[in-house]
């Protein structure tokens, strides 16, 4: 009997007991949870400050029981830079979508990475603008139809899908860069490790840590949750390969 009553699953302590507003099959909720688990594992709830971006994840503060600042669209790396500079002992993370980080906020993320700002970035690549109704993002795959690329993305018109992790990794200032996915348990477990490691890098003062997560947006992709996971496996991962792209062994200031 005791065995049956054993609790095997609960929300991370750093998260509020509130149901997610995300669409069914959306991966934002899974990644939120992975962030919450990392905060719990490292015991850093009381010094963590999150910066939410504008996109489907804008309600970060509804789900995390940590201090949260809402940044304008694309600018979270600037807010995080200042927070971490003012409060160097805090643990700062930002959570951005691909419209936010790879389009309107390209300058801010590149320069924060290049300065080696010591905070953690969770970057959700769902290949479109979820919140505004599924328009094309810089990460939209070639041929992919979106609300603003109804004929399918064509490199002659819209250019190529941008590989942010590769760009960030080649900047001298970045310390840890990885790309994961949560479309199946094996990928999820690796992504969980990447996120934990990214926070550990920050705590050790190693510098800029960045985790990209390939995420499903079944609603705007017009797929079922299962089809969306398969789409990530079949279409996204071959173009956006998973794994650790960079891990510095010693911080630059040593």
């Amino acid at each position: 009997m005791a065995e049956i009553a054993r609790k095997v699953f609960s929300k991370p302590k750093s998260m509020k007991d509130k149901p997610f507003h995300f669409c069914p099959g959306c991966h934002h909720g899974i990644v939120h949870r992975l962030v919450g688990e990392a905060i719990d594992t490292l015991g850093i709830r009381e010094k963590t400050i999150g910066v939410a971006s504008v996109g489907c994840s804008v309600f970060l503060y509804d789900y995390f029981d940590v201090d949260v600042l809402e940044a304008p669209h694309g600018r979270a790396p600037a807010e995080a830079t200042a927070i971490k500079r003012v409060l160097p002992d805090s643990v700062v993370f930002i959570y951005q979508g691909d419209g936010d980080l790879a389009a309107i906020g390209t300058a801010e993320i590149i320069h924060a990475a290049n300065r080696g700002e010591n905070f953690t970035v969770i970057f959700i690549n769902n290949a479109n603008y979820g919140m505004t109704g599924g328009q094309m993002a810089p990460t939209t795959l070639l041929g992919m139809k979106t609300a603003t690329s109804p004929y399918g993305r064509d490199f002659r018109r819209e250019g190529y899908p941008i590989k942010m992790s590769e760009i960030i990794a080649q900047l001298e200032g970045s310390a840890f860069v990885a790309r994961g996915a949560v479309n199946k348990p094996a990928n999820l477990n690796k992504t969980k490790k990447y996120i934990l490691k990214a926070f550990e890098y920050q705590i050790k003062g190693m510098g800029f840590s960045f985790v990209e997560v390939l995420s499903a947006c079944p609603t705007d992709w017009g797929m079922t949750p299962v089809e969306a996971c398969e789409f990530i496996e079949r279409e996204m991962i071959p173009y956006y390969p998973l794994g650790i792209l960079k891990e510095k062994k010693v911080p630059d200031h040593l």
């Binding site: 910066v51 600042l69 940044a71 304008p72 600018r75 600037a78 807010e79 995080a80 830079t81 200042a82 927070i83 500079r85 003012v86 409060l87 300058a107 801010e108 590149i110 320069h111």
Partner: peptide
Amino acid sequence: GVFLQSESEVAAINMLLGAAATGA
């Protein structure tokens, strides 16, 4: 203190926002 030359005025004002949010 901290002096930081931002990459643009857009970044500068958002850094201002972030720092102000800490009460500084």
